[in-house]
Design a binder for these strands. Structure first.
Length: 259
DNA sequence: ATGACAATCAGAGATTGA
């Protein structure tokens, strides 16, 4: 089973790019972030016509996540538990019913800039809620994974210019520590289980020719629970998507699971 | 230190992103 995460930076602006990608790359499951659309305006029929079931958790203008799947989805839930007052659409879960069912959590973690400040406090509080949800999922002792735009640069090797991010919400020690706490629970970062070394990125800013200079950062991740990590065949970044016409500033990241 | 670029909502320019 091939699963991809992709921050599409607006489904309305990216629909042609998205449809062509679904046709050409054909993920079994696509986990999307920043759909920037309410559920009613999401182009679900165009995607259903390609053989996908579509589950969205959208909001007006910003944020918004979705799961597209060629396999049936069960037990869909929306919103990260732990704060009923949080109205930002950043979390969706569903169980993908392949040969081995896998619980998939799609997340769009808050950016957090400027830091310090209320937006950074929201990011850290959101990660605390994520930590709790992740623990609960592990307790089930069945295959599960967390994937999406984490807005975290895990280590210096995950940025072309690490010095540019030391005071940024994506690279601050508290951000990295919260990410490590997830790993320390027993989650495996799929990409680093397969690929070592610097120079692998999933985001390049639209500005200042960042793509042409390969001035990127790796912030889109797969965290696999133990039962899911046992199924990992491969993990890779589809970086060539950044060079196509009308690209998102993120590219898809993939896992192949024996599930 | 800031802007560079892009998307959204709105129908200009502010807001958000990373």
């Amino acid at each position: 089973m091939k699963i991809a995460t992709f921050n599409i930076n607006g489904v309305k602006a990216r629909i042609e790019t998205l449809l062509k990608w679904l046709e050409d790359s054909a993920p079994d499951v696509a986990v999307l972030q920043e759909i920037k659309s309410i559920d009613e305006n999401f182009p679900r029929e165009l995607i259903e016509d390609l053989g996908y079931v579509v589950e969205t958790h959208g909001q007006k203008s910003f944020n918004g996540v979705a799961i597209l799947s060629k396999l049936p989805l069960e037990d869909v839930s929306r919103g990260l538990p732990g704060d009923d007052s949080d109205e930002q659409a950043r979390w969706i879960e569903a169980t993908v019913m392949g040969d081995t069912p896998v619980r998939i959590c799609g997340l769009y973690l808050p950016n957090g800039n400027p830091a310090p400040g209320p937006k950074y406090e929201y990011k850290l509080a959101w990660m605390e809620r994520l930590d709790h949800r992740a623990k609960t999922l592990l307790d089930a002792e069945t295959p599960c994974l967390l994937t999406g735009d984490f807005n975290i640069i895990p280590q210096d090797e995950d940025a072309k210019r690490p010095e540019a991010w030391v005071n940024d919400a994506l690279g601050l020690p508290a951000s990295r520590a919260a990410f490590r706490r997830l790993l320390n629970q027993g989650y495996t970062e799929a990409f680093r289980a397969r690929v070592q070394g610097a120079g692998h990125y999933s985001f390049w800013d639209y500005q200042a020719g960042a793509w042409d200079r390969n001035d990127g950062i790796r912030i889109d991740h797969f965290l696999l629970g133990p039962e899911c990590a046992d199924l990992l065949n491969d993990c890779w970044i589809e970086s060539e998507m950044r060079g196509r016409s009308k690209p998102s500033d993120h590219v898809p990241v993939w896992v192949d699971l024996a599930a």
